[in-house]
Write a protein that binds this DNA or RNA. Structure first.
Lengths: 110, 110
DNA sequence: CATTTATATAACAATCTGGTTATATAACTT
DNA sequence: AAGTTATATAACCAGATTGTTATATAAATG
């Protein structure tokens, strides 16, 4: 079975999630919005479902697919210990830029 | 070329990043710490390098691989518009649990 | 009831992935 | 200089992934 990370690796699946972020959608809507055959979309939806990223609700012959954003907390959790590392770097970059700007101002005054 | 999301899909590559989070490492160290052949590790490192997730520094015949955490900001950025969605859900769950606990307390008193 | 519609699954082909072994390359060591 | 060490790349293979077409299934419709 696919992990969340593998599920997110495919760009079409990420687009599906982006579309479901706005609202639940029928399979047919997603087929119209993306350029992949209906069976292709159904297969992607199954992967997303198995990974816990979406849920389905039956409505007669239709299927409403809905985002389950909680599933993304796992990715966020993995990312967590890295966050301060890149934020620290951006802070340092910002400081450097501030400093350069400061120096330039001083140059202008001499 | 592989995107960051594809690079992160492989568990061995995620472990490499986790190890580099602590400190820069030589290829040989990673080979010892993970159970994959040296060429296997080198191939993963190339993928990570192409994705911008690590950088290399030559040191004689050795190569120090170092984490480039800024690259992960892209993943964080993709995740960003989802964050409030799952946080809202967790908040609601918390409220529900509080409420249940409250009701239980009241039941005890009757 | 026959037909159409919405979706899922099967079967298949092409490509990609991740691993391995063998080999190349360049830098140390003796 | 010859041998050893660290790493990268080539060549290859098995299995996975993604896409397609054909088909199954169940619900809606005339």
């Amino acid at each position: 079975m696919m992990t969340i990370f593998e599920a997110l690796a495919d760009p079409t699946r990420r687009r599906i999630l982006d579309l479901l972020r706005e609202q639940p959608r029928l399979v047919g809507e997603l087929v119209d919005l993306l350029e992949t055959s209906q069976p292709g979309i159904s297969k992607h939806l199954r992967v997303l479902r198995d990974a816990g990223l979406v849920s389905v609700r039956k409505d007669g012959q239709r299927r409403w697919y809905e985002l389950r954003p909680e599933a993304l907390a796992e990715v966020d959790g993995w990312l967590q210990p890295y966050r301060h590392l890149w934020e620290a770097r951006f802070d340092r970059l910002e400081n450097l830029l501030d400093q350069l700007q400061e120096e330039e101002k001083n140059d202008g005054q001499t």
